[in-house]
Simulated scan of single mutants.
Amino acid sequence: MELRHLRYFCVVAEELNLTCAAERLHMSQPPLSRQIKQLEQEVGTVLFERSSRGLRLTPAGTFFQQHALQILEKVEVTIDATRRMARSQRTLFGVGFVPSVFYGQLPMLVRDLRKRENIELSLAEMTTVQQIQALKAGRIDIGFGRLRIDDPDVEQEILFNEPLIAALPTGHPLEGTSPTCEELASNPLIIFPAKPRPSMADVVLGIFRRQRLKIDVVQEANELQTALSLVASGIGITLVPEQVKRVQREGVSYVTLADKSITTPVVCSRRRGDKPSPIMEEANAILKVLVDNRRSGRYP
């Protein structure tokens, strides 16, 4: 499958008329029709319903259209960024991160790096597992996550351990207290992300499992913000890293846990064996200051 097949498909899906689509694509109708049929054969399903009244997307076609548009948009953004980087003679530096680390000091690292005229910064939200693969593939240069993952090609450094806190619906009986895990376990639990796994969800589940506490996972969310929205709706509670309390969300209250030893690490991942580039050395220097400030309780 080539990008042109996706472009052809998206135009046909928008026009729902092969003649009009062919005119937009500056080609004749028969070759376009053949390309669409070849695409359906490669995907392995019918994407369009064909009738005397024209074309209509099948449910599979609607799904494929949504993702094809995202792919084409990503390609355009990548091409545009590459051209800008080439014109400015900047070096691309990729940063992967899980959302929960972006409420603390990571934005300060990003802000400081963006001030460097020689750096074209690329940010990508991804799980720790995805960061490991992206590092090995060269798509990012450094990653910030929550999990320790053993991989011979990647080195990981725990920057600091961060306390976990509970996010409760406002007015919850535990609001204003420091609940134990046993008290939390008696409440419906929301975990995130639902996939891919392993993830922060498994960290939280492991906390209760190690204490042999039975829990009721009432909902799995793909994103932190979704989990907080579910909490605000009164569906359940969730555990989040301490940094997240900076997010003032209506309907959500945060409480510290009775057990202060319940923490989650902030893990920095880099390719093993790489000689640090000048940009990586800059990033490491900025990161050291930020981590020292975090450990000493100073927040610049």
Results as ranks from 00 to 15, higher is better:
M1P: 00
M1C: 00
L3C: 00
L3T: 01
H5D: 09
Y8C: 10
E15S: 04
A21F: 10
S28H: 14
S33R: 15
E40M: 08
V46R: 15
S52G: 05
L57M: 09
G61R: 14
T62H: 15
Q66C: 06
H67W: 13
L69Q: 14
I71W: 12
L72G: 13
K74G: 14
M85R: 14
G96F: 03
L106C: 05
A124Y: 04
K136T: 07
A137G: 08
I140F: 04
G143A: 12
G145S: 09
R148M: 14
V154Q: 12
N161S: 13
E162A: 13
E162G: 13
L164G: 11
T170E: 15
C181I: 10
N187L: 05
N187A: 00
P198H: 05
P198K: 07
D202K: 02
I207N: 06
R210Y: 00
Q211I: 02
K214E: 03
K214L: 07
V217K: 13
A221Q: 09
Q225Y: 06
T226K: 12
S233N: 10
I235Y: 10
K245I: 10
S261Y: 03
V266T: 11
S269C: 04
R270N: 01
K275H: 13
E281C: 06
N284F: 13
V289Y: 05
V291A: 04
D292W: 07
R294S: 01
R295C: 03
